[in-house]
Design a protein around this nucleic acid. Sequence first.
RNA 1: GGGGGCGUGGUCUAGUGGUUAGGACGCCGGCCUUUCAAGCCGGAGGUCACGGGUUCGAUCCCCGUCGCCCCUACCA
Length: 419
Amino acid sequence: MKVRFAPSPTGALHIGGARTALYNWLVARGSGGSLVLRIEDTDRERSTPENVAQIIDALEWLGLDWDEGPISQAERGERHRAEIARLVDEGHAYEDEGAVRLRVPGEGATVVDDVIRGEVRFAHAAIDDFVIARSDGSPLYNLAVAVDDRDMDITHVVRGEDHLSNTPRQLMVLKALGAEPPTYAHLPLLHGPDGKKLSKRHGAASVGELRAAGYLPEAVRNYLALLGWGADATTTFFTTEDLIERFSLERVSRNPAVFDEQKLRWMNGRYLRELEPGELARRLAQLHGDRPGLVEAAGAAQEKLQTLADFWPLAGFLVERPREIDQRAWQKVMGDGALDRLAEARAALAAVDPFEREEVETALRGVVDRLEVKPKDVFQPIRVAIAGTTVSPGIFESVAALGRDEVLARIDAALAQRP
RNA sequence: GGGGGCGUGGUCUAGUGGUUAGGACGCCGGCCUUUCAAGCCGGAGGUCACGGGUUCGAUCCCCGUCGCCCCUACCA
C-alpha cells in the first residue's frame, strides 16, 4: 500500500489533520507500505513556508514519519500544466474565459467506492464543468491532486470526509487522463463540543497547542486513534505497536466525532503516571526548561498530574521558592496554635537523618502523636509554610524533595510572620 | 436552491432480526486519607433522531421526515 498525507499549509496542523496523518501512518506501517508527505500549496496566496515548517514540526513531535517528501505540489506546476494541455488537446477540457474547464458528461454518474462508506453515487447532472486551471494557467486543486496521486502511484487515498464530494471530480480527471483510480477512504470529520467545525474557539485545537498544554505525543496518538475507530468493545489503551497491528480502515466509523479534551486529559494522566520520574522530569524540562531538583519534584507530583502543564501550579514550589504565602491559605490553617505546632515540626525535622521520605514521615507522625492532634493540624501548616498554598503533592515527599535546609528556611520565614 | 454524507446516554464508541443495548470519559455517592488528586467500590443517565412499513419480533432491513455537517470557488 502506498498512501499520502496531503495537508494544505494555510494554517497550523489541526487535530483533524493530525488524525488523518495518524491513520495514514498506521495504514502504511501496518502494511509494510509507504507514506508520502505532500504539501498542497497550489494556493500561493494562503500557503506559507512558516506553516509548512509548523506542520512538519507537529508531525515530528507526534512521532509520525514519512518515506517520501515533503513534496511541494506547487513545484510540480510544469507537470500539471502539461497534463492540462493534453486534456485540452484530447478534447476532455476546454478554455472558458481564459480558464480551463473539464467536460462533465450530461448524463450518467460517477460512483465512488469508499472503504468506509461503501458505494456513493454522484449523478453527472449535478456537477458542472469545473475549472482545472486558472486563467493565468496555474493548476487547481482537483487537477493537481488527481495528477499527483497518479504520478506518485498512490494506492489508497485516506482523507477527511469534506473531500468526498470532490472525489467524483478527481475520478473524472483520472479517467480523462486514462489512469486507474486509487481506493478511497473518507474519514468522519471532527467537530467541537458545539457540533461546529473544530476551531480555535474550542480550546487546544492544534497540535502545537496540545504540545504547549503539556500532553504527551503517545497519549495524543492513542486518543486520536480512538476518535473514529475502535478495535473492539472494550479496549481503550493501545501502545503504538498495538495500533499499527490492529488498526484497519474497515473499522473506522462513519459519524463525525466531537473532540473531548477532558477525556484526553484523563488519558494523558494515565500515560504520565506510567513514566519513570526521570523520564517525566525530562519531558517537563523539554516544556519549561530544566531546574535543579526537578526529578525529585516530578516524582512527588506525578500521581496528581494530568498534563505536564499541571506541574507548575501544583508543584512549582518544589523547584522555586514561592514569592509569598497565599493569604487565604494562611488564614485558613495558621490560626489557633498552628504556629506552635509548626515550631514543633521544625524541631523534629531538624533532627531527621537521613532526610528521606520514610524518616520524614516517622518524625512528623511522631509530632502528631506527641501533640495529640489530628494529622492535618500539623501537616497543613507545614504545607502552607513550604508551598504557600493548601494544595500540594504529598507532604512527606514534598518535604523530602525540598531538602532539609530549604524546608527549615521556609518554616522559619513563616514563623517570623507571627503577629 | 442542487448534490452528498451522517444520526446508539452530555461525549467517544461496541453490538445483534429475539441480550437486563456492552465499555470508556464526564457526573453523583462511598471507601481511602495530611490537602488535592489518583486508586478502588457503587449509582444515576439511552423510547438505539422521529414517523411509517416488512416481519411472529426490529436499534439492526426498506421508505419518508427532521436535524447536523460537507461539496456546489479561477480555495484546498
